[in-house]
Structure formats: C-alpha cells, structure tokens
Nucleic acid binder design. Structure first.
Length: 799
RNA sequence: GGGCAAGUGGUGGAAUGGCAUACACGAUGGACUUAAAAUCCAUUGGCCGUAAGGUCGUGAGGGUUCGACUCCCUCCUUGCCCACCA
C-alpha cells in the first residue's frame, strides 16, 4: 500500500508554499478562465462538491500543462438562511457560525488537492464584497431597474415572521406548526423583464451549452404569441380582456373564467344571488399557500358569478366563472374556456356540467360531432367547423385569418405575452446584504449616497426567530437622518436574496481585492468571459439567468464589452447511492472525508471520474473505489521496478494512449481516458517500462491523481513540479498500423477476419475474400449479389 | 400535466451506422503463504454442443439500411427539472 497520507500532505503544502496556482494576467499568453459554481459553506463538503470540483480540477491542470494561463478561483456563497437558523438553534451569531464553516470547508477542499488560486478567495458575506452588491443595486435603482411593489409572502401569525417556501411544511410553520397565511408586503423587485428579448435572443449565441439548459431557459422566459380578445360584459359597456394562443378555437368558447384575484370579480357579484358563495370561495383559495396551490393533484374548483359575457364573434352570451386554475399572474388573469380543445377546460366543464362545442376536427378521422362522446379534449390540428365564415380552413391558417380579422374589427389585438416575471429580491432576514435605501417622511424613497457605502450589518443583533427581521429591532440601525434633507428617517430593514450575490461573483474573481469598483475593467477584459463553467443542473434556470441579466446590465453601463458570461457550460450529474440522491433524510450519505482517510484524495478523485461520464448520474459503489486504489498502488509498484529501454510495441501503445487520453480529456470523457490509462499500465506491467515511458504515464496521470504523480515524478529525479512540464505529444508515425484487420460479414453477420496492408486495393481485397476458406460454407452455391467495402474496417458480402 | 435525459452482462459502464459488452468491480478456480491480507495467473451474457462450432441477445413492438445499441415511428419504465402559462 502506497503511503498516500504523507504524499498528499507533502504536495498540498508544496503547492501552497510555492503559490503554484496563483496567477496574474499575462496579456501575451493565452488565458483560460475555469470556474466551478462556488459552494454554500455548510461546513462539510459532499460527494456532489467532490464530483463538481474534481471535474474542474482535471481540466485546470490539463490546461496548465498545455501552457494556458489558467484562472481557477474558489470562494463561498456565504449569506443565507441556514446561518441564521443555526444562530437561533445554537445561540451563536450568523457570522461566527459562517466563518467557522468556511474554515472547515476550505480545509476539506485543500485535502482534495484542488488547484485553486487561494489568494483570490472571496466570501459574499464580507463587507468588502457585499458593499458592491449595494453599489450595483444603486446603479439599478438609478436606471429604474429596482422598484418597489406589493407582493405576497408566507407569514406565520404566531412567530410574526415571514417564511421561505421550504420553511412551510404541510401548510404550517416549520418552527411552531401554526397555519401559514399569505400577507402582502411592499418589497423590492429587479426589472429583469426589461431584458427579456435579449435574454431570449442571446441564447442562440450559446453554442456550447447543453441543449436542455437552453430549452429550460427558453421555456422559463416563455414568449408566446397570441391574441387579446375583448369580451363585452352582458348589459354593460365594460369589456373583459382575455389572452389566448389558440384564437382558432374562439367559436368553441363556451364560458369565461376569471382568477379569484381578478379586479372585476367583486363588481360582477355585487348584489347578486351568488355573492356570498363567491366571496367564500375566494377567501378559501387565497388562504392557501402558493406551494399548495401549485402542488400537482389539485382538483380544479370554481363557482359561477351569476354574470354573462358576450362572445364577440357570434354574440353568444356565455357564463362567467371564477376558478383557482386561472392565475392572476399570467396573461390578463382571465381566460376563454374551450372545453373541447383544452384539457384543463375539459375537466372543469365536465365537473360543473358546462356546455361544450367542437370547432376543430382532425383532418382524416372525423371527430364525433357530439361533445358527449369525447373522452378528452382534442388539442391537435385540424379543420375548422362550427366557426362561421372560417369553416373548412385548416386551423393553423384560420389562426392567422381570425387574428387579422379581429385586429381590423377591433374585437381583439395581436399580442405577445411573456412568462418571465420581475425578480423579487427582498428578504425579511438578517443574514444578507442590507438594501441601501432610506425612507424619509418628506423626500420619500432616498438611496443611500455612494460615499456612505457600505451599509454594514450591525453586529449586535439578536436571533430568536420571532417578531420579524432582527435588523428592524436595532434602533441605531433603523433610525437615520435623511441624506437629502436631514429629517429623521427610517432605514430599509430587508436584505437581498442571495442569488444577487452569485449573479456577478465570477467578475469579482478577476480582481478580488479591488476597492474602487466591483471589478477592474482591465483585468476583466483579459480574463472574461469564462471559458468553462461547471455546476449542477439544479441551477439551469435561475442562477444562470440572473448572471446573464447582470452581465447585460454591466454591458449597458459600459463596464463590460460582451453580453454572455459563460462560453461553455458543463452540467454534472448527481451522485446517487442505492438508486437515490444522497441526502440526510434518506440516510445514504457517504462522507468524502472518510474516503480520503481510508484511501486518499487521489483514489477518490480517480474513482469519481472513472465511475461515469460527467454529465450522467453516478451510482456510488463502495467496492468500486477499491479498484481505483489498486490501480494507483500498481503504478507505485511499477515505479520501483523500471528497466532500461522499452520494447517498440510498448512505445507504440504509449503514443496511442497519449492520443486517446488527450482527445478524451478535451471532450470531458474522463472515464474512458482513465480506462485507456489502465490499459497502458497493464501493457507496462507485461512488457516492462523504462523511465521515458513511465514519465509519460505520470504526465498523463497528473491531472487525475496529482499527488502521486508529483511524488513519482520527483522520485525520477525531476527537480521541478510535474505541472511545470508540458503535456506529452504523440508521434503520428508511431500510431500508423502496418496491418489492419478487416472484418468480413456475410449478410451482415461476422464470418471471418483477415489481416491486410492498410492501403490494399479493393480488387485485391475482393480476391482475398473470395479465396477465404472460412467463408466457403456460407457462400457456396449462392450468387453474390453485392459486396460492400468499408476501407480499413469491414467488408459485407450479400448473397 | 409539460419539458429534458436515460434504459446494454451479476454491478458501474464502453461502443453514436460497421467485430456488442473495452476498462473496472464482483464471482469462481488456481499460484504464493503455516494462515490470512496483498499480489499474480485463468475463467466469467444466455442457450445447444465433449469439442469445433452454432444460435439468441442492447426495455417492448414496428420501420429505414447491405448492415441498427446507434437513425425514424409507437409504446413501456426510471430519473431530473418545471408545473393549472390560457
């Protein structure tokens, strides 16, 4: 067993003392900015971190050996709820708890031997960092991109505090179990919707992002083109606007549905028979928390308002309902229901016995004319029926014609709707960046002047979990004089969502100590954009979208001259155990630290790369790790047993391996790169290696198992770190084959193989095939219909 | 409900139109050892066969092709993300 513990400590200290991975911009050299999503400092790293950061480390070390000037930084996304909750539980302070966790986590990362430039470490909870959050907020405020608006929060009436969605358990408060209510609060929003077109269009630039992330972002932004139709309220001049993407189904609209919060509802029911019932229904619905309302098997519920609307295309009076499946936040908060051609409307109509009408039939099979026979809504394309002057048209054509007709007659208007909402950043919490705003009774909302930044988090807060944000209870913090008129004023006590912090940290890494700006323009010009970003798929939407938004904002401020921060994106798969994601509640966690103690970091790194390709899920197997450990031990033993001169056969294998490993790493196929290293080691074992062959093995091993590679490199007499050497190159002449094996098939089945010169003529090959003894029994007496030859590979005889 | 992945030996996986199961784990047998561990060697998809060999086989069914794990269609299963988006 090789002494991994001593070796790993030795080289980790060496790298640190030599500042091996500290870099400065060197404009004449090619740069490579590699970034992995920084962790929340929970104190312990988990296998997901190990996988993410090992993948990054292999690429970083590989690029270093290829001669790139590599920026590979690490930091901590350190604000957030867990610190505050820990403070409540353990009677400590969020900052003390967080910094302790950071120290622990940094140690664990160092024990993995990652090649970070630790001189660039940042923590988002440092004043020197969050000061710039405030600066950015003020810039956004100046441009009208930060604004205040009322929004609902989860509210615990017992603790008198707001709760995050994940703190609401079964509709109750996680601390006291009291039923959670919805409460409206004035909060801060960022106008990300102003960037919606650019956020959508620029996705086409991201050629090296996984397709599924691009799709998810596209869906999230959710551009949909349709028509806003104006339904007149019966017996009045009032209109109800309704948005639809299926204007072709307008003749099948048999009722309208309003969201419970719709502004017209109360007016509609005033003095009607249904008033009481509707009000009761609305009360019921609004009490429900958002998480319940959107939780899946929700039954669609609704009530009739007693009012009717006029369908503008056929003057039909149709009933108006209120139902919980229509959302105030999307479209106009009202829909036209077409039960025959929308499954949700179909279910609702069946439930409440509402009328239905088929207006589109599938082109070939005649859809039954009676809606009673329908088992589900028909949402596909077809021919218009029951649609007045549009009968007989294919529905896609009708869509355009009806829309134009509506525009001309003023019945409706062609409109584009977006799913993307503005971004709510206010949190009624302590452990976050204070929003730099002051409320003056005379001047109103007043931004904190730039020269007064930072607004520091006061140290003396108390953490009880009750009575709202701890900041609000600190008089010295809250009571200030207005920066404009000096009148006694109140400070904003909300802090920013932590996604704000992580939306620009990658820029900060370029000049982490800059105290005159969030980042230094010259440094950013050299390092950005990020060449490779690596992280979990769970951040496919929000974090990446917000970072893209910030980048575009900085571009508008002329602080950046590009619009997309991440050129390439790699989303690594989850680490599973027994077929399920590792989690505390499942009790299937494998602690990386215990593996390091038993086998060392090199083994852990090697196994996690070998067990699966980076993008797929990885099933953890305690036995598999033994294999990686054995492999490293094998190399250790070989190093003690080198020979003079290596057989030419081994030299050829070496060149082939260099080619394969280089190509595989470039395509992030680490598992097969390691497999070919194993094959190479097996060949060395059999044939016996000399120093030159073994040196090349070490060079290729170095990104994967850097400690062992360094140690053995030194034992060969090298004075400098292996990472000062360049990546080995293969000699193309050494990998050309003298002979190639041609597989011969008869009717697609392998029947024989022959060895021939690579440049053999087709005619000569044909002669050889027809002369082949083994083939005789398969082609006897049968006429040869065809012979397909794939050069250097295969021949297929069709008989 | 929508979107996106994935489905291959006992297990993790390899092969992206051309020899299915590379590499590794596990298992079995053997060598070394007083013994064990470690190490080394051999075997290891199913079925038929003493063997040579044959035959079936990549979730299921169909299609394209000289040839399909790979491409197309339908379905099933699992995972992930999002979710009443009109």
């Amino acid at each position: 067993m090789y002494p991994f513990k001593e070796i790993e400590e030795k080289w980790q200290n060496y790298w640190q003392q030599q500042k091996m991975f500290s870099v400065t911009a060197q404009p004449r050299r090619k740069k490579y900015y590699l970034l992995e999503m920084f962790p929340y400092p929970s104190g312990k790293i988990h296998m997901g971190h190990v996988r993410n950061y090992t993948i990054g480390d292999v690429i970083a070390r590989f690029k270093i050996m290829q001669g790139f000037c590599v920026l590979h930084p690490m930091g901590f996304d350190a604000f957030g709820q867990p610190a505050e909750n820990a403070a409540i539980k353990n009677k400590t302070k969020p900052d003390i708890w967080t910094y302790k966790c950071i120290d622990q986590m940094r140690q664990e990362l160092k024990r993995m031997g990652f090649s970070y430039d630790w001189t660039r470490e940042i923590s988002t909870c440092d004043v020197s960092y969050y000061k710039w959050n405030q600066w950015i907020f003020l810039k956004m405020f100046e441009r009208g991109l930060a604004y205040r608006k009322a929004a609902e929060v989860n509210w615990c009436p017992s603790c008198l505090t707001t709760l995050a969605n994940e703190e609401v358990i079964d509709e109750g408060c996680w601390r006291c179990g009291t039923k959670v209510e919805q409460k409206k609060l004035e909060q801060w929003f960022l106008k990300i919707t102003e960037y919606k077109e650019r956020l959508l269009e620029d996705l086409t630039q991201l050629k090296n992002w996984p397709q599924r992330v691009l799709t998810m972002q596209t869906n999230w932004i959710g551009k949909s083109e349709g028509v806003e139709i104006y339904f007149r309220l019966k017996d009045t001049q009032k209109t109800i606007p309704v948005f639809t993407t299926r204007v072709d189904t307008i003749f099948g609209a048999t009722y309208l549905v309003l969201a419970p919060q719709h502004y017209l509802v109360r007016e509609l029911i005033a003095g009607k028979l249904q008033e009481k019932e509707v009000l009761k229904f609305i009360e019921q619905v609004t009490k429900r928390t958002k998480s319940v309302r959107s939780s899946g098997e929700m039954k669609k519920e609704g009530v009739f308002t007693g009012s009717f609307a006029i369908n503008p295309v056929n003057e039909e009076a149709i009933p108006i309902w209120v139902a919980d499946y229509v959302l105030m936040e999307y479209g106009t908060g009202a829909i036209m229901a077409v039960p025959c051609h929308d499954q949700r409307d179909f279910l609702f109509a069946r439930e409440y016995n509402l009328p239905m009408r088929i207006v589109i039939t599938p082109p070939n099979s005649q859809l039954t004319q009676s809606p009673d026979d329908l088992k589900e809504a028909y949402e596909g394309d077809g021919i218009q029926i029951n649609s007045g002057q549009f009968n007989g048209l294919p529905n896609q054509q009708a869509k355009i014609r009806i829309a134009e007709w509506m525009e001309n007659t003023g019945i409706g208007k062609i409109k584009t709707h977006w799913r993307l909402r503005d971004w709510l950043i206010s949190r009624q919490r302590y452990w976050g960046t204070p929003i730099p705003i002051i409320y003056c009774p005379k001047c109103g909302i007043v931004p904190v002047p730039y020269e007064d930044l930072p607004v520091e988090l006061p140290k003396k807060a108390h953490f009880t979990g009750e009575g709202g944000s701890p900041l609000g209870k600190i008089k010295e913090f809250v009571n200030v004089s207005c920066p404009k008129c000096k009148a006694p004023s109140i400070r904003e006590t909300d802090t920013m969502a932590t996604f704000f912090d992580s939306s620009w940290y990658f820029l900060r890494f370029c000049s982490p100590h800059s105290d005159s700006a969030p980042f230094d323009t010259e440094e950013v010009r050299y390092w950005m954009p990020i060449d490779q970003y690596i992280g979990g798929i769970e951040h496919a939407i929000l974090h990446l979208l917000y970072s893209r938004f910030f980048t575009k904002f900085f571009q508008d401020l002329k602080m950046l001259d590009f619009s997309e921060p991440f050129q390439r994106l790699l989303t690594q798969g989850m680490v599973l155990k027994d077929g399920a994601v590792m989690s505390k509640s499942r009790g299937n966690i494998v602690d990386p630290d215990s593996i390091i103690k038993k086998y060392g970091a090199d083994t852990l790194r090697l196994f996690i790369l070998f067990a699966a390709p980076p993008e797929t899920e990885l099933e953890w197997d305690d036995r598999g790790i033994e294999g990686a450990f054995k492999f490293l031990n094998r190399i250790w033993r070989i190093s003690k047993n080198l020979k003079e001169g290596a057989p030419p056969e081994l030299i050829r294998i070496m060149h082939k391996t260099i080619k394969k490993v280089t190509e595989d790493i470039e395509e992030f196929k680490f598992n097969t790169a390691i497999a070919s290293l194993m094959e190479f080691v097996n060949a060395i074992y059999q044939l016996g290696a000399d120093r030159q062959v073994f040196s090349n093995l070490l060079l290729m091993l170095a990104p994967f198992a850097p400690h062992l590679a360094e140690e053995l490199w030194e034992s060969l007499g090298n004075r400098e770190s292996i990472f000062k050497s360049s990546w080995p190159k293969y000699n193309p002449q050494q990998i050309t084959e003298e002979k190639v094996t041609i597989v011969i098939q008869v009717n697609g089945k392998v029947r024989s193989k022959i060895e021939v010169a690579p440049d053999i003529s087709e005619e000569r090959l044909k002669e050889l095939i027809l002369a082949d003894e083994k083939l005789k029994r398969w082609i006897q007496h049968k006429p040869i219909k065809n012979l397909i030859i794939v050069p250097r590979k295969l021949a297929n005889l069709v008989v």
